[in-house]
């Protein structure tokens, strides 16, 4: 379709993923932090609402769309005709703030929450992917090179684990141990290496029969040269394509578990737990569940496009 350079889908996917990752890692540093933490006196603000944040000397932040600053008192008007009068001595600063994506029940800026949540979701998914890559590559290589008995045992194990209901295993583990990233990463990683192991084993077995590798072996190339020059470059395409799609699945899996209350504890925002929070106030605040969901969708779609593009490249080469 386009001559030279990367396929269009790959570029679109890489672009989308890069923007999202950059926003999630850098965004929280650049945006002004606004930790509202008084649930009784904060409102659910719709997207693009402008509101005033009143910081108190004891660290509490009150967020409201209506604040009156008079000579003696700062009056904060909360939801339901509730008003709080604060003497100037208790107030440390009054600042105006634009909530581009609205706010949650605690008056926290949803944009900031989404970015911070994304950072955690991305970190958990990429670490899990790393675990899956280590297991998948390792076991796939051992099965392909380790002799028939090892191969048979490992592949039957892969069959059994593939037939095992994985989400159920996750729920079981998470209900039995304490949920958190330290549990989530190994569990997610361990539950998603089987496809990769199969892929690597199949690729190595079929590459082994290919003329160029047979030629290299007859010519007396040492094994590390054959692996470095022939196996690794030929494995890189399919493995990275698989990794891109798997990363999308892992982001979805993490979000699902956090949504079910089994992933990261709700005190730390992730995309999944933000959606879960939004689910509880669905009728009052559509924005709370919508934006984190869109963020997940953009990431997963970007990763799918990357996978498609890589497949196109691999197919074009062979």
């Amino acid at each position: 379709m386009n001559d030279g350079g990367l396929p269009r889908r790959l570029r679109a996917g890489l672009g989308g993923a890069a923007v999202l990752v950059a926003a999630c890692t850098l965004g929280p540093l650049l945006l002004p932090a606004l930790p509202g933490n008084d649930p009784a006196r904060s409102a659910l603000l719709p997207p693009t609402a402008r509101a005033t944040a009143v910081c108190l000397t004891d660290g509490t932040v009150l967020v409201s769309q209506k604040v009156k600053v008079a000579a003696e008192f700062v009056t904060v008007f909360g939801p339901g005709k509730r008003e709080t009068r604060l003497p100037h001595g208790e107030v440390s600063s009054v600042s105006s703030h634009r909530f581009w994506l609205g706010s949650d029940r605690f008056g926290r800026d949803l944009l900031l929450e989404c970015l911070e949540g994304g950072r955690i979701s991305l970190a958990v998914a990429s670490l899990s992917l790393l675990v899956a890559l280590v297991f998948g590559l390792g076991i796939g290589l051992v099965a392909a090179t380790g002799g028939r008995v090892t191969d048979a045992i490992l592949m039957r194990l892969v069959d059994a684990l593939l037939a095992f209901p994985i989400l159920f295993l996750l729920i079981l583990c998470v209900t039995l141990f304490r949920p958190g990233p330290a549990l989530l990463v190994p569990v997610l990683g361990f539950s998603s290496w089987m496809g990769l192991a199969r892929l690597v084993r199949g690729q190595v077995l079929s590459l082994r029969q290919r003329p160029f590798i047979l030629a290299a072996r007859t010519a007396g190339s040492p094994w590390y040269r054959i692996w470095g020059l022939h196996y690794v470059p030929n494995l890189a395409g399919p493995v990275s394509q698989d990794a891109a799609l798997r990363m999308g699945d892992l982001v979805l899996a993490e979000a699902t578990l956090s949504f079910l209350g089994l992933g990261i504890p709700p005190s730390t925002p992730t995309w999944g737990s933000l959606i879960a929070q939004g689910h509880q106030v669905l009728a009052d605040a559509w924005w709370l569940a919508t934006f984190p969901g869109l963020a997940i969708a953009v990431l997963v779609i970007s990763l799918a496009l990357i996978g498609d593009g890589l497949q196109e490249m691999v197919r074009g080469k062979s």
């Binding site: 959606i275 009728a283 969708a297």
Partner: peptide, 18 residues
């Protein structure tokens, strides 16, 4: 179809209920 594929099922469920 690409858009729908990327959506978490629980998110779509919430939206549909809403």
């Amino acid at each position: 179809s690409v858009g729908l594929y990327g959506l978490p099922s629980f998110w779509l469920a919430g939206l549909v209920i809403l």
